[in-house]
Deep mutational scan, measured.
Amino acid sequence: MQFKLIINGKTLKGEITIEAVDAAEAEKFFKQYANDNGIDGEWTYDDATKTFTVTE
């Protein structure tokens, strides 16, 4: 399945899409990606669109 991350950071904005087995695997990848890029904010997930959003 495809999952999307929308980044609304103070210094980094954009979107990335990955293939993952389930939402838990996608969330783990996205949170590591955000951590690696210094993004720390509020997370939301929309199951209907398979979209995670992080907002700083």
Rank of each mutant, 00 (worst) to 15 (best):
E42M: 12
T17A: 09
I7H: 06
N37L: 10
T49S: 06
V54Q: 01
V21K: 06
A23G: 10
D40C: 02
F29H: 14
M1Y: 11
T17I: 15
A20R: 04
K31C: 01
Y45W: 14
D47F: 14
D40T: 09
I18V: 11
T55M: 04
F30I: 01
V54I: 08
D22N: 02
F29N: 11
I39H: 09
E15L: 02
I16Y: 05
A48S: 03
T55E: 15
T53S: 07
K4H: 06
Q2L: 10
F52T: 10
K4I: 05
T51N: 12
I16K: 08
G9I: 11
I18L: 08
N37M: 06
T55Y: 11
E56K: 01
F52G: 00
E25R: 09
Y33K: 08
Q32E: 12
A48W: 15
A20Q: 07
T49Y: 12
N37F: 03
N37I: 15
T17W: 14
K13I: 11
K50Y: 15
G14N: 09
I7Y: 10
L12C: 03
N37Y: 07
K4F: 02
E15W: 06
D46M: 05
I7Q: 04
T53H: 08
F3A: 01
A24F: 04
W43K: 00
E15N: 02
E19I: 09
E56M: 07
D47E: 02
V54F: 11
N35R: 08
T55S: 08
G38D: 13
A20H: 07
E27F: 12
A48I: 04
D46Q: 10
V54K: 00
D22F: 10
G38A: 07
M1G: 14
K31T: 13
N8C: 02
V54E: 01
I39M: 13
Q32M: 04
A34K: 01
G14Q: 05
G9Y: 04
Q2K: 13
A23H: 15
T49I: 05
T55D: 09
E15T: 05
W43F: 12
K31A: 08
T51G: 13
D46I: 10
K50L: 06
K28N: 10
T11K: 08
G9S: 06
E27N: 10
E15G: 03
I16H: 08
G14E: 11
E56H: 14
E25A: 14
I6W: 14
F30R: 00
K13C: 03
F30D: 00
G14C: 02
Y45I: 10
K28G: 08
G14H: 08
K10G: 06
K28Q: 13
A26W: 00
V54S: 04
Y33V: 04
I6P: 00
I7L: 15
T44C: 01
E27P: 00
F3S: 00
T11E: 05
N35Q: 12
Y45C: 01
A34I: 15
K31R: 09
T51A: 15
F29Q: 12
I6A: 05
W43A: 01
E19A: 09
E56L: 03
Y33M: 10
K31D: 05
A24T: 08
G14P: 13
F52K: 00
T44I: 09
K28P: 07
K28W: 08
K31W: 11
K13N: 07
T51R: 12
F3E: 00
V21P: 12
K28E: 15
K13H: 10
G41P: 02
V21D: 08
G14D: 15
D40A: 07
K31L: 10
N8F: 14
Y33A: 05
E15Y: 02
M1D: 15
W43H: 02
A24C: 03
A34N: 13
E25I: 03
T55G: 04
W43T: 04
I39F: 13
D22R: 08
A34F: 01
M1S: 13
N37A: 11
M1K: 06
G41S: 01
D36N: 12
K28F: 07
D36L: 07
E42D: 11
D40I: 13
E19K: 06
N8T: 02
A23S: 04
Y45A: 10
K4N: 02
E42W: 08
N37R: 10
A34D: 01
N35T: 07
V21M: 04
N35V: 13
T55H: 12
A20C: 02
E56S: 07
T44Q: 14
T11Y: 07
M1L: 05
L12P: 01
Q32G: 07
T51K: 06
D36P: 01
A20E: 04
T53P: 00
G14K: 05
F29M: 13
F52P: 00
A26D: 00
D40H: 12
I7F: 09
N35Y: 12
D47C: 05
A48R: 14
D36F: 10
E25T: 15
I18M: 12
T55R: 12
T49N: 07
N35S: 11
K4M: 04
N35W: 05
G38S: 14
I18A: 08
L12R: 01
A23W: 06
W43V: 03
I6Y: 11
I6G: 06
T49R: 12
F52L: 14
G9R: 08
G41R: 01
I7T: 13
W43Q: 03
G38M: 10
A34M: 04
I7D: 03
Q32L: 07
N35I: 08
T11N: 08
D22V: 15
I7C: 02
I6C: 03
I39C: 02
N37P: 01
A34H: 02
T53E: 10
Y33Q: 06
D46F: 11
A24V: 11
K50V: 11
T44P: 00
T44S: 07
I39E: 06
N37T: 07
G41T: 00
F3P: 00
F3W: 15
G38N: 13
N8Q: 10
I6E: 05
V21Y: 13
K10L: 14
E27S: 06
F3T: 01
V21S: 04
E19M: 15
I18T: 08
